[in-house]
């Protein structure tokens, strides 16, 4: 299987890449995408917290930090998916994975007062990915929105959880065609919990 990471710039992404290649999968990253004939697993591994995005509305908004977060966490992953589609079409798994954060992206559950750029980019990513899923699921694609719980779960453990989430198939009922968990678009974290949108 060919696994592709948009970036390998975090401990989590590097741990996951090592785990996958240790299991005999071919791992590619960044610019290597353009030379790839076939891709099975696409992992948008951007997960950027800009240091100057750490303001509350009372401190004053830093619009540049917000827009930098949006470019990195939202625009880049969607553009990378668009560019990867020809190779994914030729692959077998056609699985698309995005990294996100339940604590920041969940409009239902967020307790955050800081990190507007990060939160807005990840919440918007939920919706952009959902719309891509609506378009691509009928074409055989499946999606994973995954929260590695950076800072709460050690990178190696989170990588193992991601491997399970990304590669294990989700429930389907052999007796009831169409009754499949892949038809739900969900956000799952490294502890196996689902977050509401």
């Amino acid at each position: 299987m060919n696994a592709y990471f948009t970036r390998l710039d975090s401990d989590f992404a590097r741990e996951l890449a090592a785990l996958l290649s240790g299991e005999g999968h071919a791992v590619y990253a960044g610019e290597q995408r353009d030379g790839l004939e076939r891709m099975d697993l696409f992992i948008a591994s951007q997960d950027v917290r800009e240091p100057d995005d750490d303001f509350t509305v009372l401190d004053g908004v830093n619009p540049d930090a917000v827009m930098r977060s949006v470019r990195e966490n939202l625009v880049e992953p969607i553009k990378a998916l668009e560019a990867a589609l020809p190779a994914l079409d030729r692959g077998e798994l056609r699985r698309v994975c995005f990294l996100t954060s339940g604590a920041y992206a969940s409009v239902n559950f967020s307790h955050q007062t800081r990190g507007y750029g990060y939160a807005m980019s990840k919440a918007a990513l939920s919706q952009a990915a959902r719309i891509c899923y609506n378009r691509l699921y009928p074409q055989g694609y499946t999606f994973r929105m995954f929260d590695p719980l950076i800072g709460l779960v050690p990178a190696r453990e989170a990588a193992f959880a991601a491997r399970e989430c990304f590669l294990r198939s989700r429930a389907y009922d052999p007796d009831n065609p169409g009754r499949t968990d892949e038809a739900r678009f969900v956000l799952r974290d490294a502890l196996g919990r689902e977050w509401p949108w």
């Binding site: 509350t56 509305v57 009372l58 949006v70 939202l74 969607i78 920041y104 992206a105 409009v107 967020s110 307790h111 955050q112 007062t113 507007y116 939160a119 807005m120 980019s121 990840k122 919440a123 918007a124 990513l125 939920s126 919706q127 952009a128 719309i131 891509c132 609506n134 378009r135």
Partner: peptide, 24 residues
């Protein structure tokens, strides 16, 4: 929808910003 994602995602971003404003 399977398209129009610019406008849709920007309104989701608005919702989370409103949640965070509410928190403060």
């Amino acid at each position: 929808r399977d398209g129009d994602f610019r406008y849709c995602m920007s309104k989701t971003a608005l919702n989370i910003a409103v949640r965070m404003l509410h928190n403060t």
